[in-house]
Amino acid sequence: MSRHETGEKLRDTLNALAKARSPDHDERNDAPLLVALKRWQSERLGQSFTGLLADDRYQPAAEFFLSDLYGSGDVSWRDRDVTRVLPTMVRWLPEKALVALNGALELDLISHQQDLLLCEHLPGPSIDTESYARAYRASCDEALRHRQIDLIVDVGRELERLVKVPLILGVLKLARGPARGAGFGQLQSFLERGFAAFRHMGPADHFLRTIEQGERQVMQRLLNQHADPFGFGQTRSKRQAPPNGASGSPRAATPRTT
């Protein structure tokens, strides 16, 4: 695929994301239930990956990969900024960087679409493990859920390779001032945090394997109606949300996968 074709694919993904997030396209985007669902999932994932978050080597990558990329907060600013700066990115960034960015955006798109479907089957904003599991089974597109997890690994592998390319880090540093002056400070900071986190971590095998295996297991346990799908040692009488009793701290804000 040429650089131009990759740029066009990025533009298509950005357009699909803008449509998926639009209340005009889907009124569920304005519903409090969607906010509650994203927060619940973030807190669940924070509990699932406490081991990575507690490890000095993996903590920065976990906080970026499980929070900045796929957290419960509003990232529409990122999509708008990428859309505005896309022609420049296509000219200056290596094609592998564009591919990684498109993968991250596609992952966000699938996650958001699946969240909207989940909302159709939730009884209300008071979510617990049992109601979540029922809604998950009723709305699950298994192929897309597997694609979701595949993308986590693919994007992680690309980031692992990209941080070894001196040119990219140099371009990011040179672009810091102009980016902020042009109103892209948030996007610039987002990119720098990601590269710094993965550079700090080094080899990503354990990090990515932990996430992939954990989320595939959760997916199968949810579909198989396991009594404790997330492996938190819960009983049916204790399935209250959030599953870890968190209050939404940054360390608990993690990606929307399953």
Rank of each mutant, 00 (worst) to 15 (best):
H200I: 00
H200D: 07
C140R: 14
G181H: 07
G194L: 00
Q114H: 15
S126W: 11
L69H: 05
E142R: 14
Y132G: 03
E95F: 12
F64K: 03
H121E: 10
A143M: 07
G124K: 02
P87A: 00
E142G: 08
G202Q: 05
F65D: 00
L116Q: 05
R80V: 05
G73Y: 11
A104Y: 13
T129M: 15
L187Q: 04
S111M: 08
L159R: 03
P87Y: 07
S131H: 12
P125T: 10
Q114F: 02
L101M: 09
R193V: 03
G202S: 04
L101R: 13
C119S: 05
P178T: 01
G124T: 01
L191R: 00
D115G: 08
Q188H: 12
E192Y: 07
K96C: 06
I152V: 15
Q188G: 11
Y70L: 13
R80C: 01
I127L: 06
N102L: 07
M201R: 09
V99Y: 06
S76E: 13
Q188E: 14
A179N: 01
L101D: 05
L105Y: 08
H121I: 05
T88L: 15
G202H: 07
D154Q: 15
A175F: 14
D205A: 13
C119T: 09
W92E: 09
G71C: 00
G183P: 06
R147E: 12
R78P: 02
L107F: 11
T83L: 10
G185T: 02
H121S: 10
G170V: 13
L191Q: 03
P94D: 00
G156I: 03
G124H: 08
K164E: 14
G181A: 10
E142H: 05
A104V: 02
L69C: 04
A197F: 00
D108W: 11
E142S: 11
D74I: 06
Q114A: 12
G183M: 10
G170N: 14
A175I: 02
L86P: 05
S139L: 08
D108R: 14
L174T: 14
S189V: 14
L107Y: 10
I149G: 01
T129H: 03
D115M: 05
E142W: 06
D68G: 04
L101K: 13
P123I: 02
G194Y: 00
A143S: 11
L93W: 11
S72F: 05
V99I: 15
A182F: 12
G71V: 00
L159W: 04
D141L: 12
C140S: 15
